[in-house]
């Protein structure tokens, strides 16, 4: 079982998502939450980095945080799964450990 990483910073504000992608081994998962959901959006300066990462890691985005910010599920990068808090819990249980990238 691999690790679940959570990222809660916008890639426009901090390098957290970039660091996480650089240190997540293939087969692990990344959940974008809080301001981190901005990293899930398509057609941004950072979308290509996210798409490239998806060759190795599975990426999820927290739906309630998208909605709160008026961001449409339809505008997230193709292949990113939109999940709720219950799914967040399931993801932590399915992976061996959780690293929160603070």
């Amino acid at each position: 079982m691999s690790m679940l990483h959570t990222v809660n910073k916008s890639p426009f504000e901090r390098n957290t998502l970039e660091s996480c992608i650089g240190l997540a081994v293939p087969g692990s998962a990344i959940l974008l939450m809080e301001d981190g959901v901005i990293g899930a959006m398509a057609n941004t300066k950072h979308s290509e980095m996210v798409k490239a990462a998806m060759a190795n890691v599975k990426i999820y985005v927290l739906g309630p945080d998208l909605k709160a910010r008026g961001l449409s599920e339809g505008n997230v990068v193709d292949g990113i799964s939109v999940v709720g808090y219950g799914d967040f819990v399931d993801l932590t249980a399915e992976h061996a450990a959780v690293q929160s990238w603070l």
Binding site: N8, E34, Y85, G86, F88, V89, D90, A93
Partner: peptide, 19 residues
């Protein structure tokens, strides 16, 4: 910061799932 809200939502969801 949203951390407390996220932690509350996560805790409630985990309890609902019987954890």
């Amino acid at each position: 910061h949203q951390a407390s809200d996220s932690a509350l939502a996560f805790t409630k969801a985990a309890l609902e799932k019987g954890h």
